[in-house]
Write a protein that binds this DNA or RNA. Structure first.
Lengths: 120, 120
DNA sequence: CGGGATCCAGGTGGATACTG
DNA sequence: CAGTATCCACCTGGATCCCG
């Protein structure tokens, strides 16, 4: 209960919250999180849903999310192998934020492209 | 007014909204946007506020944001030189989202570190 | 003061091949 | 099916120097 750590502030170079932001900013993290919205989903289905992600990167992204406590991994003892991923409570808490980023990117795409074009 | 472009969907590999998300995910973009919250701010002040960013990266980040229509640049004809940056309407519209990401990262840092530690 | 130009180390992430 | 391992091309971004 001790307040032994100061309030995190991402403006400070040494603040570990920067690592968290960096992780969220990694190439596939946000898309994978949003793809986990409907609930438990298999690796293959996820792979198909997030177009263009390689097996390696999907696997790595999921491992990172699992390490950070945002995703749980459940292996089913079946043949062929079946592995499902789902969001934890922590993962669900960030979902509205990354989903908002994704929707904003989609909804404002035209305006951004217009801004780029207006500049040549 | 023609609906000549399909609805953007970042799950699709070819969707340009991925570029927008990627840009927001670039190392300094979110922090710079949040740093612009109070209003017009000079390059040097921004440089001091976002600890650890190099001149090159701050400059590049601001140029990108300007290209995308999220920031405007205003040069004052003074000696020594004075340049101010401020958010556009588009920039202000994304601000709540990236600020939420920053605050979530700060507020859930302890829990994430705990998840990592619990794993060794 | 506010950058642009250059150089370069290191990291990111894709392709491919292999495994339980 | 669901990964891991390896190799490597590219890009990000930091350091440094220079300029209006």
């Amino acid at each position: 209960m001790a307040a032994d750590t100061p309030k995190p502030d991402a403006f400070l170079a040494a603040c570990p919250s920067r690592d968290v932001m960096a992780r969220l900013g990694e190439k596939w993290t946000m898309l994978v999180l949003v793809a986990l919205t409907p609930g438990a989903i298999r690796f293959g289905a996820l792979h198909r849903r997030v177009e263009g992600v390689s097996q390696k990167m999907l696997s790595q992204t999921l491992r990172h999310l699992e390490e950070d406590g945002m995703v749980t991994r459940h292996v089913f003892d079946e043949r062929p192998l079946k592995v499902e991923y789902k969001l934890t409570e922590l993962g669900r808490s960030v979902l509205p934020l990354v989903d908002a980023i994704k929707r904003w990117s989609e909804e404002n795409l035209a305006q951004i492209q217009a801004a780029r074009d207006a500049r040549g």
